[in-house]
Design a binder for these strands. Sequence first.
DNA 1: ACCTGAACACCGTTCAAGT
DNA 2: ACCTGAACACCGTTCAAGT
Lengths: 188, 188
Amino acid sequence: MTQVRPMRADARRNYERLLKVAAEAFAEHGENASLDDIAKRAGVGSGTLYRHFPTRQALLEAAYVDRLEALGTRADELAAELPPGEALMEWLNEVCVATIQVRGMKSLLGSAVTDGSSAASTACGTSVQGAATRLVEAAQAEGALRADVEPIEVLRLAHGVATASELAHGQGREIRRFLSLLTEGLRP
Amino acid sequence: MTQVRPMRADARRNYERLLKVAAEAFAEHGENASLDDIAKRAGVGSGTLYRHFPTRQALLEAAYVDRLEALGTRADELAAELPPGEALMEWLNEVCVATIQVRGMKSLLGSAVTDGSSAASTACGTSVQGAATRLVEAAQAEGALRADVEPIEVLRLAHGVATASELAHGQGREIRRFLSLLTEGLRP
DNA sequence: ACCTGAACACCGTTCAAGT
DNA sequence: ACCTGAACACCGTTCAAGT
């Protein structure tokens, strides 16, 4: 639908080189890596980058689609292996780890759960949201999770936990602890 | 100590104009407001801005010191009015509201609770951290809060709650709900 | 149909010249 | 002692010219 006719050979080559270089650049310099630099390193004119990826967000999404989809399939693996409550918590842990350790991922996951954001309705966004919904509803059905929270709220809170953990500069060492505080609560 | 001799009259005038304009600009355009524009609007050369505030963070801090200190004194007011557990939660709510509603405040409060950050050890940072410590320890002494969390962790989690709430675009309408989820936990 | 890269606009930062 | 603003470097974005 989006791609009726195949790309011209040189266009496809450029597209793929850009994705590869972009993933490296985002990993190295974070979400604000220089676009001009990415184009140069990929050996293409800056106009070509804009032709393929009109916005920074579009490039970021394209560079990390497979990682986000991996999170989606990972959810189903965990659901098959563990009881619903544990599967959810383990998955949220992996989401948080990815948020912190994969540079550039934070803004992408953030906008995937942002109300009204463009990324929330892309393939990326729906994949993650769908996974969360399956895990949350299963946990609720088992009585392992309170019934009055919505899947997207759980994702947003997990994003908050990742943010909180980031402030401690511990490479994610606090994530499990913070997630369990969220699960068990701060009350004695 | 930092300011042995008083500023020259014109320097002081510029300093104050810059602060006033910067607070407006940050409120209007967020933490990334153009510095050049701030200097222009204050009617000073860009060099003057850099003389007074060597980094964006320094300007941000200076523009919001009083707001941060207000949060500190607010903590003591609440401690005098409410039982320890409630005082803490009410204060965290106000901190989260400020984080979301006062543009530019998020990055400042964030760096105030970031391990190893410069802002963590400024007057701003210590004021907020001190307030949190007083409230958290009082709540723990009363048994209203679990004993195995540190004040700075509570601040970081509150920052996470504010972030999560921001993703819902509700102007902070979810803050109380998210804070209570943190307090009571996600378990049924 | 797609690519290139010069051109433009904008921003941060420095520093020589000025008072 | 402090200020000014031109100058430089860097980045994002567009678009006319090229294949």
